[in-house]
Design a protein around this nucleic acid. Structure first.
Length: 429
RNA sequence: GUGACCGUAGCUCAGCAGGUUAGAGCGCCAGGUUGUGGCCCUGGAGGUCGUGGGUUCAAAUCCCAUCGGUCACCCCA
């Protein structure tokens, strides 16, 4: 090979067949369609409707929506400027969906909006197994409902997708992040607790102590973990309506038989969450164990310029992580669609006939392919087999003279001659 | 941004105490079957040994650089 141009680092091609990059599986296109179809089916079962938003968004939307201090905004955005506009390749879809909701006054459609999406997102991180610079998310935003039932419905939708696909090895972690009342109080308490121990904190944590102390909670540093074991818990600061909300979410989950584990250290890296916060992880995945995550974000609408707060809750899930989980569980994915017939033509006259016949059969809705290389019969048969055609339709000079085609059932290997005029009918059988 | 590891056919890999024509399996192509696939047999095509430089009589094998890839940290999907 000379020097063919390669795909951008951290991106990948989805090919007809699955392939592996080291041990990570890149699923084939048929598997992607199958998973996407399952997502749509599960979403439809909840009455969710699809929304498609641009891949390009104004940088301001992401910066304000997700938060300046987040890793995503501070160092992972593919952003550029052109003229006097700042563009960003969307790193997630919650802020864009909320933007669309507000821009199009979707509240005027009445009631609750359950909006689901599937599509690519971009983050300029160093790629590794299960993490890419262009990755694909699916998720739902349930906008307009404050009730804890909404939180539970969203969690149920999320888990429903994995269940529908046969993934069972997963763990749901749950926490509450409080509200505009309790969070500042907790923030102070945590700062007060950690300040005397600042010397024992890592450098990034010391910075976060000032800017965003909650983020220290999800540290993996063993020393900090030990220190945090005795730290005040956010849950204990949540009271009033938020406390009740959290209690009801837990009760409703239990009532639905959805197992979860409370994790007071689950804070997540995006600023817009309030109250419920959750993450779904697969123990089988190793370093990138998070399959999906989400939570309630009642204040996001205000952050992106809405006149008033809009209660909303949603989840986002990673397609690539899902494929890793499917692979780890040994769940087989469907192969490409079968061909109804492959027309094997021998000689110029037959080849011409095949071209016209194939066109007619396709208009009748059949899936038909023909040889384009004028190859030997053996090669054409092999091709029919590779494309898993149900029938091989063989036509040479004899058949042309008799106006009959030899129709061979590729699975059973029995064959019979069929008049040209009856071909469409026969192939449908 | 930091660290580690890896680059030999389309794929998975062997060859590396330096030595003449670089191998295997799978895949691909063709033949065995004047017109019959999947199994089997035979043969064939396909490689600047990532790239550049150095050491040497001689480098896929040793050294340096560079590019690319992967994994991990951070964080998340």
């Amino acid at each position: 090979m000379s020097n063919p141009i390669r795909s951008i680092t951290g991106t990948f091609d989805v090919l007809p067949d699955a392939y592996r990059v080291d041990d990570a599986l890149i699923a084939g296109s048929a598997a992607w369609r199958h998973v996407e179809a399952t997502v749509r089916d599960v979403m439809a079962r909840y009455g969710a409707e699809e929304i498609r938003t641009p891949i390009l968004e104004p940088t301001e939307l992401i910066a304000r929506g997700i938060g300046q201090l987040t890793d995503i905004v501070s160092k992972e955005m593919f952003a550029f400027e052109r003229g006097d506009t700042n563009y960003v390749l969307r790193p997630e879809l919650t802020a864009p969906v909320m933007r669309a909701y507000l821009q199009h006054r979707l509240d005027q459609r009445g009631g609750v909006q359950r909006l689901y999406y599937i599509g690519p997102c971009f983050r300029a991180e160093r790629p590794q197994r299960g993490r890419y610079r262009q990755f694909h998310q699916f998720g739902v935003e349930c906008i307009g409902a404050e009730a804890p039932q909404a939180d539970v419905e969203v969690i149920s939708m999320m888990i429903g997708v994995y269940r529908a696909l046969g993934v069972s090895d997963m763990k749901l972690r749950l926490n509450t992040l409080g509200d505009a009342e309790s969070r500042p109080r907790y923030r102070q308490a945590l700062q007060a607790f950690l300040a005397p121990h600042a010397a024992r904190l890592t450098e990034t944590s010391r910075q976060r102590l000032e800017t965003n102390p909650l983020r220290i909670l999800d540290t993996k540093d063993p020393g900090e973990r030990a220190l945090l074991a005795d730290a005040p818990k956010l849950v204990d600061f949540v009271d009033g309506a938020s406390r009740e909300h959290y209690d009801r979410v837990r009760n409703l989950l239990s009532a639905q038989g959805i197992a979860f584990e409370e994790d007071p250290f689950l804070v997540r890296g995006l600023d817009y969450y309030t109250r419920t916060s959750f993450e779904l992880e697969s123990p089988a995945l190793g370093a990138q164990s998070a399959l999906a995550g989400g939570g309630r974000y009642d204040l996001l609408a205000l952050e992106v310029g809405g006149r008033e707060a809009v209660p909303a809750v949603g989840f986002a899930a990673g397609m690539e992580r899902l494929f890793l989980a499917l692979d780890a569980a040994g769940i087989a994915m469907p192969a490409a669609e079968r061909l109804d017939a492959y027309l094997v033509a021998l000689g110029d006259e037959a080849s011409e006939w095949a071209t016209g016949t194939a066109a007619r059969l396709r208009e009748g809705g059949l899936r038909v392919a023909t040889d384009l290389l004028s190859r030997s019969m053996k090669a054409q048969m092999r091709e029919a087999n590779r494309l898993s055609a149900r029938y091989a339709v063989i036509v040479g000079s004899d058949e042309m003279a008799a106006r009959e085609a030899m129709v061979r059932d590729m699975a059973g290997a029995e064959q019979e001659r069929v008049p040209f005029d009856d071909l469409a009918l026969r192939l449908r059988a």
